Simulated scan of single mutants.
Amino acid sequence: MTAPLIDPFARAISYLRVSVTDRCDFRCTYCMSEHMTFLPKAELLTLEELDRLCSAFIRLGVEKLRVTGGEPLVRRGIMTFFRAMSRHLQSGALKELTLTTNGSQLAKYAKELADCGVRRVNVSLDTLDPAKFAEVTRWGRLPQVMEGIRAAKAAGLKVKINGVALKGFNEDELFRLAEWCAAEGQDLTFIEVMPMGDMGNDYRIDQYWPLKDLRERLAERFTLIDLTDRTGGPARYVRLAETGQRIGFITPLTHNFCESCNRVRLTCTGELYMCLGQEDRADLRKPLRTSTDDAQLEVAIREAITRKPKGHDFDYSRQTVAGQMPRHMSHTGG
């Protein structure tokens, strides 16, 4: 049982993204409905159960743990979980503990996160325009997020901005976002919008801005130097010669990056998705609750990894949608 987790395509699974809640204080249009029906709290794993599950993955070779949601920092008592995971950093078993957040609660928790060993955070931010921010998040306030970013940096956390590329929405802010991040010393990663959740009849085709087009726009003003940097995720990076900053591209639609996928996703109810873009999943809550011994749980984890597919089927290339997922992004974890 000490052998590492290797999937059918010889990829070592070393990265776990764990959603601690499906709830969020924003309602981003590409992530969830405005009037969401959230899971009953009784269905969620307790923080102690999440600790046990994540600890099992760490024993089996996971070295990077990213905490997601929903918005992870709205979960009651969430710092108890971060403090528990910090013991794996101290032992050396876990190389990185990090999170993806909308930034709304960072002013409250940044220092405590840093004290738990978190060294960097990803903040989702698609626009620097307060009115457009309110439009895309529905419930969000840009000044609150900016305050959170400042608090994170004051606490010593490295901030990376994640922006979803949305045609007709933030195309005109491409250079503004890049230049703001450069001035703030922040990396910036763009993400293609994915066909997940409630999409209506057009499945977000009208919102889809291919990152190859975005990259060409960037190259009109900046010199792009391709980098071999890898951070354990799907992003591919360039450096802008004029500013020295790093720009990442996550391209699930224009470029399938699945050949190097090293990650799986655990939901707040104990479902393990071996691929974001496939519906196959494994129930880890049952073996978790069947026995206080982890033997059955580890067997279930290993069996799930044998079903990890080669890749997803997302495709907008023919102006029709393949591979769309009916579940919301917030269910699986952002």
Rank of each mutant, 00 (worst) to 15 (best):
T2C: 01
T2F: 07
A3K: 14
I6N: 10
R11C: 05
I13A: 11
I13W: 08
S14Y: 05
V18F: 03
R23Y: 04
C24R: 05
R27I: 01
F38H: 03
L39D: 01
P40H: 03
K41Y: 05
L45E: 02
T46V: 01
D51V: 15
R52W: 09
L53G: 09
F57S: 01
G61R: 12
G69N: 11
G70H: 04
P72I: 11
G77T: 13
F81K: 05
S86G: 05
E96V: 14
T100Q: 08
T100S: 12
S104Y: 07
L113W: 08
V118S: 02
R120I: 01
S124K: 04
L125R: 06
L128Y: 01
A134P: 08
V136T: 00
W139N: 12
L142P: 06
E147V: 08
R150P: 13
K153N: 02
A154F: 07
A155L: 11
A155N: 09
L157Q: 00
K160N: 07
G168Q: 05
F169K: 04
L177V: 09
A183Y: 00
P195N: 09
M196G: 03
G197E: 02
W209N: 15
P210G: 06
A219C: 10
F222D: 10
F222H: 05
T231V: 10
P234I: 13
L253F: 13
T254W: 02
N256T: 06
C258F: 15
S260E: 11
R263T: 11
V264C: 07
R265T: 02
L266P: 00
C275E: 00
Q278W: 13
D280F: 04
D280P: 02
A282G: 15
R285I: 13
S291F: 00
T292C: 14
D293T: 13
I301E: 08
I305R: 14
K308G: 08
M325D: 14
M325P: 08
P326G: 12
R327K: 12
M329Y: 00
S330T: 15
T332K: 13
